[in-house]
Design a protein around this nucleic acid. Structure first.
Lengths: 215, 215
DNA sequence: TAAATAATACGGCAATTGCCCTATTTTATA
DNA sequence: TATAAAATAGGGCAATTGCCGTATTATTTA
């Protein structure tokens, strides 16, 4: 029987997670908490737990701080961050704090269950988009020292692809060739990218994109 | 239709992977290669590819080197390393080379297919045990050092100054203004820089300069 | 000191880029 | 199912860039 705890300041979401886990007979939700310190109190009484599903943004004691403390005191307990957001700083801080996985709340029951099992078997549960972010962090150690917050810069998938090509120093026509697009389309994408990033040249675009971990 | 290529020096394993993919109607294995240089030749003819499943240990040109080259030339093509081993060095080198995912050959058809789809959607395909290793790498930044090669590229003091300005994304005229030079002089300096670095645009110059620790 | 290198500066020209416009089709989302 | 957002594509134009000349004036250095 897998003994799980859930920590989330939103009781509705706790309920939703519980429901997802209810499909699996070998999972038992031992207790739930609305914040980190509530969890710590419960752990003082008993730390017979296999794994904690932890939200990040909570009052009193947030998920990152709580993870750090739990991992310090009870290193045998696995912790998966289960959160709505996947911004770089949260991910990196969670990893540093010792989290064993990072999943998004929108996850379906089976993937959640699989993630729990994999984590208990020594692996790491990770949403693919988050896995990609960790790869980018590994490639750009600069970001690790000073992770900057990406404001509300939201580029479309295609725009990111174009940006990646731009960062190789390629010309419009070559990019069009690579992405099987008309040069006009590439130009238009780049125009839109410039507007979103508020820049006026390839170099500035690439630089800003790198600073914001877009590429 | 997802256009896939497979690169593996073991033709039996190529066949096995093909068979796993045969369950899925929207996957088409465009071509297979027994090593990196064979793949590169095929890509020169046509790079209409979505994703490459790449072995690591191959003769002639191994998976890491091949990944680096492909990612440089055709950054739009996703690459998943598909290998028998999961040692730390391979993983880290593959990530640095630009791999978008890292799966083990023992994977079942569905997970392989899911991994491919997730990767094409901008995520990263990762085996849980490998995900855990990347987390550990992120926690120990000591391992992450990039020893760069220092070839004999000798730029003059002035040229380095101009290059630094270039890297800010500034235009010829603005650079001239900053360095109290005539725009013509700046243009000439940049011309000389391009010749020394053997590049043909601002972006390439800055990129190459950064790789060689000039700026 | 003579020769080589670096730094300065200009003119011309083709190609590329940045920015404005419109417009259709596809995809997502409310 | 409307509506919005994204992706596609093209025309036009001014500014910038990349590349080719040439040429004068320091500054090194052999």
């Amino acid at each position: 029987m897998l003994k799980i705890a859930i920590v989330d300041d939103n009781s509705f979401l706790i309920h939703a997670v519980k429901e997802k886990l209810s499909f699996f007979d070998d999972v038992e939700v031992k207790h739930t908490s609305l914040n980190g310190s509530e969890l710590l109190t419960k752990l003082q009484e008993s730390h017979k737990l296999d794994l904690i599903l932890m939200d990040i943004e909570m009052p009193v004691l947030n998920g990152i701080e709580t993870t750090q403390i739990v991992k310090q005191k009870y290193p045998h307990i696995k912790i998966i961050m289960l959160t709505a957001f996947d911004n770089d700083e949260h991910i990196f801080n969670a990893i540093k704090a010792g989290a064993d996985g990072y999943l998004l709340k929108e996850i379906n029951p089976k993937d959640l269950y699989d993630g729990i099992c994999e984590t208990l078997n020594g692996g790491a549960a990770m949403n693919p988009s988050i896995a990609m972010k960790t790869l980018k962090l590994l490639r750009n150690p600069i970001d690790i020292q000073n992770p900057r917050d990406q404001e509300e810069i939201s580029l479309s998938t295609r725009e990111v692809e174009v940006l990646e090509q731009l960062s190789k120093g390629l010309s419009y026509t070559v990019i069009a060739d690579h992405l099987f697009l008309s040069p006009s389309t590439v130009r238009k994408h780049i125009e839109n990218i410039y507007k979103k990033l508020q820049v006026h040249s390839k170099m500035e675009a690439v630089q800003k994109a790198k600073n914001h971990n877009i590429i």
